[in-house]
Amino acid sequence: MTELAAGTIARRRTGRGFIPSIHGWLLLLPAAVLLVSFTHWPTAATIIDSFFSTPKGARPAVFVGVENYEAMLDDPIFWRALWNNVVYCIGTIPASIALALLMAVFVNGRLAGRGFLRLAYFTPTVLPMIAVANIWLFFFSPSYGLVDQVTALFGAPARNWLGDPSTALWCIVVVTIWKEAGFFMIFYLAALQQISPRLAEAAALEGASRWYFFRRITFPLLMPTTLFVLVNAVINAFRLVDHIVVMTRGGPDNATALLLFYIYEIGFKFWDTSYAATLTVVLLAILAAVAIGQFLFLDRRVHYQ
């Protein structure tokens, strides 16, 4: 009898931790089901599918080992798309971050008309990428478009900007910078407003120049923001291909095929789902590398806070 009573008490004790535990999981459950179904499971399934063949008609998928990966390494369009994505990153990320910082500094000061300026810088962010791409498509159209009209003033001949493999990707780069710089500006602006004005006063007393103050105080203090913006920019560079679909469809001659666009074509034009999964694994690996890189950097970031 005493044993039974002791058991009940013990159960009650652990029960205090147990009941909230169930509550916690119950609250989490609905969101967790969706997250697992549409993020974790497809991630795992992508990796599994990359080792199988694409089922065709009555023929089911069979295990093919690393055959898909071998095919990928021999696929010049894959390498082209990967290289395009690298060029696209180098072309868009540093430029849009630098412009974002410049815009934030402009808007943070007390320049005449900064209300208008903030509006002008930020507006492209609100527009759908698809709308942006349609507007710019018009600009780049040969001889009729605005770009050619402007260059014609300087006597340059009409060009097919989007139809020429040597210029097409750079047109896409320009559109992306235009769309993203204002978005990143917001984060710099928020960070600039959190820097204590005391720092500037103290530095001025010490006789530091304006540029010196920016380089040695402001810029280091903005490092966490720069990291955050950088990570976002890299993810976007691999995640967003709406403008490719509208402006070039990856052409001419795959000059503007980015990795995700190529996955889209393989998966939904050629319905080669296993190969699309293999390509997706590469994309996931890149994103994972970004995540790990961010994690390692975050430790250092503590230094500044």
Binding site: L35, S37, F38, T39, W41, P42, T43, A45, T46, D49, I235, F238, R239, L240, L260, I263, Y264, G267, F268, T273, A276, A277, T280, L283, L284, L287, A288, V290, A291
Partner: peptide, 16 residues
């Protein structure tokens, strides 16, 4: 999910 958004998992999500 902050890193691997549904935007890149189009093939598997279509299958689902």
């Amino acid at each position: 999910q902050l890193m691997i958004m549904p935007d890149v998992l189009i093939v598997e999500n279509y299958r689902t």
